[in-house]
Amino acid sequence: MRITTTVNGQQRVVDDVWEGESLLYVLRERMGLPGSKNACEQGECGSCTVYLDGVTACACLVAGGQAEGREVVTVEALADADGLHPVQEAFLECGAVQCGFCTPGLLVQTHDLLARTGRPSDPEIREALAGNLCRCTGYEKILDAVRLASERMASR
């Protein structure tokens, strides 16, 4: 089947999509956007988190066909011409990135949290990121990064 969707602001048309393919597969293997990660493909780890019509979702749980006519934003679109987004900068500076496989999903979810909640408390951060598994960091530096990003974004 053919899917027409807007990805990171650009209209994309892909053909020959098998009905069983997930949005994650379509992004990674058919659109050349492998930034969203395939850690569990069961909706448990959050590594493939993307925006679907402005709401975060696990791309592995969305059928490719469900993206028809909708708007998808992935980790690849967080940085702009001016450089990295403050969330990306903070993850880098705080050492919140080790292997980095969870990072794209965490960045998108944190981006969403900080768009909704200016200065989240630690319990709010933990609740918002509870669907994103990280196996390397023990989460402490991820918390540091979210706090730093929220501080910087609030002071802008």
Binding site: R28, L33, P34, G35, S36, K37, N38, T74, V75, E76, L78, A79, L84, Q88, F91, L92, V97, G100, F101, T103, P104, L107
Partner: peptide
Amino acid sequence: DGALKVTGEFAYSSD
């Protein structure tokens, strides 16, 4: 490799 990892450009073996 940090900047590549936060932009989604870092390629893993599955990419």
